[in-house]
Design a binder for these strands. Structure first.
Length: 230
DNA sequence: GCGACAG
DNA sequence: ATCTTGTCGC
């Protein structure tokens, strides 16, 4: 497991962080369909915190997209790089997530993030940010609504309703289990929304949350537990 | 001004 | 995110 410090020049204030988002937003690519579902590899990334000890642990878990078998995993720990501020989540998670991705022995393929991409107050959530910094195709899958309102999707798995900013669809509330609270899907970088939703459905054969998210969540929590002070 | 607010 | 026990249901 690798250890990371907060990068030099990392934003220290909310104002600086918003300026970074405004600058990087223009580098998002939204005219690619993205990797087809059930082919290649799909990687889940997630982070766990211990604010008391100022420690953050990140995990990246690579799955075979067809079988959903784990083919590789990596973790990293670091210092907390930013407070939690809604809309600025990326600044809290990204340094350690990048270290975990760098520690993987193979290319990650599509990266599935916890949170939002395009469906963000400044159109540049965690998934978009991670995509722009790595050049990888990314999507965001959030467990809770954030900026945009949505209608209740139909009851069956696969039903969805748009997250609308005026007439523009910036994401989708997607039902992954019959009658269970939907997840909130948005594109990050180099993936189309239809492709993103198709991946999420492939990644949820049994539970509400994608296998990528579940695996990464379990691994980063374990990494945090096993991180000894000092 | 007040409340709500990804993780 | 994290703090936390039992409990209802498949």
């Amino acid at each position: 497991m690798t250890t990371v410090r907060v990068p030099a020049g990392w934003p220290a204030t909310e104002e600086q962080a918003r300026a970074v988002q405004d600058e990087l937003r223009g580098r998002m690519v939204h005219d690619e369909p993205g990797p087809p579902p059930a082919t290649g590899r799909v990687t889940g990334v997630d982070v766990a915190y211990d604010d008391e000890r100022d420690v953050v642990a990140a995990a990246a878990v690579v799955l075979d997209a067809a079988s959903l078998d784990v083919v590789a995993e990596a973790t990293a720990v670091g210092r907390i790089s930013f407070p939690y501020v809604p809309g600025l989540l990326a600044f809290r998670e990204i340094p350690t997530v990048l270290a975990a991705l760098d520690a993987l022995p193979c290319p990650p393929g599509l990266v599935v993030c916890d949170g939002y991409g395009l469906a963000h107050p400044r159109r540049f959530g965690l998934a978009s940010h991670l995509g722009v910094l790595t050049g990888l195709p990314t999507i965001g899958v959030a467990k809770n609504p954030f900026t945009f309102a949505h209608a209740e999707p139909g009851r069956p798995r696969g039903s969805s309703s748009p997250l609308l900013d005026g007439a523009e669809e910036v994401g989708r509330a997607l039902r992954t289990r019959d009658g269970v609270k939907p997840v909130f899907v948005s594109v990050g970088h180099r993936v189309a929304l239809d492709t993103a939703c198709a991946h999420v459905l492939r990644l949820t054969p049994r539970y509400r949350l994608p296998e990528t998210t579940r695996r990464a969540d379990a691994l980063c929590r374990r990494a945090l537990r096993e991180t000894v002070p000092g």
